[in-house]
Design a protein around this nucleic acid. Structure first.
Lengths: 72, 72
DNA sequence: AAGCGGTGTCAAAAATTCTTGACATCAGGG
DNA sequence: CCCTGATGTCAAGAATTTTTGACACCGCTT
């Protein structure tokens, strides 16, 4: 699990759709730092399921509406 | 994130429903160890999203069919 | 020109997830 | 009985995620 994980995400998309929510604001809303949001948006690593749930719920959607699985 | 996370899981349930798949066999199927499966079943920590996806897909279901969010 | 919010990067450290190996228990079969 | 498979525990370490703090760049406004 050191590679870029086979996971896609639409965080940026959702963030922009949601009233220009900044990375910092989203981070604060879900309890992680700005840098964590950046890393997730860039797909640098696979977040914890907990962080994933918090982000999804912040946008009022399901986990798989935010993160996708690239079948490998 | 050191506490028991607000996440429920039905891994054991799915495992038993699926032809008596052992913890070891599930671990091998998704690329983690037996101890990791045990810890996840017991809710000791929040798995990575990647591991969550692999487990869900092994059972042919979505992430939220395996893991649930306890609204806090 | 100076200030501001937003995004990005980097590096080191803290925290968490996952592995390895060992040992224990229990149920079932031979 | 003894063996085996399945589950569980523990502890130490490896690997990964997340934090902290710093600095840079851009576009915008004043």
């Amino acid at each position: 699990m050191a590679r870029r994980p086979p996971i896609t995400n639409r965080v940026r998309e959702l963030r922009e759709a949601n009233g220009q929510l900044s990375q910092a604001a989203l981070g604060e809303a879900v309890g992680v730092t700005r840098q964590t949001i950046i890393a997730i948006e860039q797909g640098r690593y696979s977040p914890s399921l907990e962080t994933s749930f918090r982000i999804a719920r912040r946008f009022g959607v399901g986990v798989e509406d935010v993160f996708g699985w690239e079948d490998e």
